[in-house]
Amino acid sequence: MTVSAPTENEPKAEITASPEQLKAERPSRRTLFDFIKQQPLGTIGFLIIVILFISAIFAPDVAPYDPEEVDFMASPALGGGAPGPEHLLGGDAFGRDILSRLIFGARTALSIGFFSAFIGCSIGAIIGIVSAFAGGKVDILVQRGIDLLLSFPIIILAILVIAIVPKNVVFGIDINVIIAISIPFIPKCARVIRSAALSIVTLAYVDAAKAAGYRGSRIVFRHILPNVVAPYLILITAYIGQAILLEASLSFLGLGVVEPTPSWGLMLAGVNSDYYITAPWMIVFPGLAVTLAVFAFNLLGDSLRDWLDPKLKL
């Protein structure tokens, strides 16, 4: 869980000028500009994410070299490859340009991160909502199932799935890795969304909708779903960071993405202990890339939570 902290309560000073008035006077805080003004840290995170996305999309134009181009002169194994004007972040064991590999690695990290978070959170959200509505035995059963799955550490579950699902690469994206990462997210999201939906079901406006004779589907789609969109978005944002971290860990263990796909985690895998001293850039920069990306998504997720739904507990 990334953003596990509930937001700090403002001191109860707001009670002063009649909460109603302050509410009525407070301008609508739903524009991008308001977000930038109220959540500077989130804005920083958002900017980093935008830069990452741009460099991932335009990787061939941005990257100085082909990520698979081998330049033995730039290999630390042969005593070269230190960061310099030719290779800004240095070269790896095969003399490939690290900066280019990082830029192409952003494609892997972001696509796997986004799709696994999206798939995991969406399935989780559907299960959570169904469970909240069905209530009774279904709900109890789903809850038990969630509890059961939560007793497996995320990475253990992901590795098990990796072992089960056959390798499958489509358009350079490792589908099996996406599945492996998204499955552990399902119970976590289901739990959060279920409690969010449950708290809305008991609100008076849902009763009013029932009393007005609206159909069940209208109540769900018009009155309840729009109000769980906020926690859903927050979850996705936070879990993209998680997924990037997980992808890096799996690839590091040799269980995730495989060569020659550029991946940040993979760049750290099997690093010979010689390089710790002779070529520290091979270790520092890929890890920094992971950290920066996860950091950005965490910042954005945190700020989105503070902004949209401060009471949400992830």
Binding site: T2, G241, L245, A248, S249, F252, G265, L268, I283, P286, G287, V290, T291, L292, V294, F295, N298
Partner: peptide, 9 residues
């Protein structure tokens, strides 16, 4: 930072 840094790194 603690939430973002991969523990293996």
């Amino acid at each position: 930072g603690g939430l973002a840094v991969p523990s293996f790194w």
